Amino acid sequence: MGRQRGGRAARTSDGGPVAGVYPIDTGTCELAVDNLNPHGWVLKVNGVESSHIDLSDPTYLDFEYMRWIAELVASHWSTDRRVRALHLGGGACSLARHLAARYPDARQVVVELDGKLAELVREWFDLPRAPLLRLRVGEARAVTETLTESSRDLIVRDVFAGNTTPASLTTTEFTGHVRRVLAPGGIYVVNCGDTRDLVLARREAATIGSVFPHTTVIADPAMLKGRRYGNIVIAGSDVPIGDDPALVRTLLGGGVPAHVWDDGQVRAFAGAARVLRDAESGS
């Protein structure tokens, strides 16, 4: 593996990607072979593991939290639904690629801040083309605020600067923009990375619960008990979500068994946590 210089992404003679460190607009990204999967690739952005892609199977998701989101979506919509999805945060477009395979009629937009990264990912991973999957370069909040009311069925927020979600994407005001853009019956899903104290997760749950009448949380029990750092999936909707018994069974049987909390449990978890506001984030 070596450091690649500007220009187009390096490719092998058969058209496959080449492991290496590549310059991007926000720093560097590293593409590495997954030693446990001959078809797998791991993408790191500025030293932080961002995405995993299996070139032989677009439905395969290596990251557990992405599997949880995918199963929540599957419990809500049948595969013949033309889901209109907005992904805030691109990485390698793993989840968008999965949904494109599972929902052939879906129309998806992935918003990625780093234009060069978006270009490399498009070249490396043979993503579906527009109108099935469009990559839009821009800042997630700014793009969301320009979108038409009720124009999306699914909005997924998976944006990180290092290991932290920008504060402007966690606030009540931003979540209000999300709800405006969601169509009736739509789902807003966030990947919340938090430490063992769960302060951020509680505040995110309180914030999403202040905007949406129905919420759910998906995470592994150790994370919910504050025993480790990790990911908590929090979702909001104007209709009940996460209440399908089949979803509960599927997530309990996963590689990392996960619990699904209903709206009452989510609100009890949030407790007296203060909602997040633009004034606090400096937005």
Rank of each mutant, 00 (worst) to 15 (best):
M1P: 04
M1E: 08
G2P: 01
G2A: 07
R8A: 15
A9E: 08
A10V: 04
G16S: 12
A19Q: 14
P23R: 00
P23M: 03
D25A: 11
G27N: 10
N37V: 05
P38G: 04
V42W: 00
L43I: 10
V45Q: 00
V45C: 07
N46Q: 11
V48Y: 10
S50A: 09
I53M: 11
Y60A: 11
F63I: 07
L72P: 00
A74E: 11
S75Q: 09
W77K: 09
S78V: 03
R84Y: 09
L86V: 06
G90K: 02
G91P: 04
A92R: 00
L99H: 10
Y103C: 05
D105W: 05
E112A: 06
D114H: 07
G115V: 02
A118D: 09
V121T: 09
E123P: 05
L127F: 10
P128T: 10
L133M: 15
V137R: 13
G138F: 13
A140Q: 02
A142F: 04
S150H: 14
S151H: 02
I155V: 15
I155M: 11
R157V: 10
V159M: 09
F160G: 02
G162S: 04
A167Y: 07
T170W: 00
T170K: 03
E173M: 01
H177Q: 08
V178P: 01
L182I: 04
T195N: 13
R196N: 10
A201C: 13
T207L: 13
I208H: 05
S210N: 10
F212Y: 15
T216N: 10
P221N: 03
K225V: 02
G226P: 00
V233T: 10
S237E: 10
V239H: 13
P240C: 03
V248L: 13
V248Q: 12
V260N: 03
Q265V: 05
Q265P: 05
V266G: 01
R267H: 15
A268T: 14
A273L: 15
D278V: 14
D278Y: 11
S281L: 08
G282P: 02
